[in-house]
Amino acid sequence: MLKAHNLVKIYAASGVPVHAVRGLDLEIEAGEFVAIMGPSGSGKSTLIHMLGGLDPRTSGEIWLDGKRVDTLSESGWALLRRKKVGFVFQGFNLVANMTVADNVELPALLAGTSPREARERREQLLDKLSLSDRAEASPGQLSGGEQQRVALARALANRPALLLADEPTGNLDSRNTRDVLRLLGEVHRGGQTIVMVTHDARVAALADRVVSLLDGEIVDDGRIPRRKIAGAGEVIDLR
């Protein structure tokens, strides 16, 4: 589904080159849920931006669905994102002038969905994220957690084959996190591929696989062990 080969990103801010990502190899199967973890400055956001074509790579290759995409023009990437990729930004990046409903419907409309379908899908998503009553609010009136959920809904509005998310739960309290976890689980079960940068272990724990970055390199890439448990007693030791 998604493959990166020897991916490098060098920022040349104020003359001093900064190696944000140094020669990274990553292969993600269709339908897989991958969590990317690592301390700040380890290149997580840069990686996910490059995978979504939002930031051009310095060198290396990116393949999506068997096609090489790192050579695409900016417009080529835009068309690709429109069809296949949903993106959740760390800073939410809701369009300030549009209502929550319009924000969520926008990508679907852009992909050519009829306005009615787009509205139905939006209602569904907002309902799952307990945001139905905020549909007509403007992003400025929402709390950080609400904005974050709207951003997630917008990224999913198009049922993208690939969901890229950068810290999608940073501002959520535990109750809202539960809504988000449930929705992500559903998306995952539906066969959509998810690549997510996160610090939040609750979200990361949903993933099939966790990739740890340090200084722009992968230091660990493996599956999360899974066992069948019967009750809380097996997990929590109450003294």
Binding site: R202, A205, L206, A207, V210, S212, I224, P225, R226, R227
Partner: peptide, 11 residues
């Protein structure tokens, strides 16, 4: 870390 994440999944 993977062990903890496994635990977290159980939680």
């Amino acid at each position: 870390r993977r062990h903890y994440l496994g635990l977290m999944r159980e939680l």
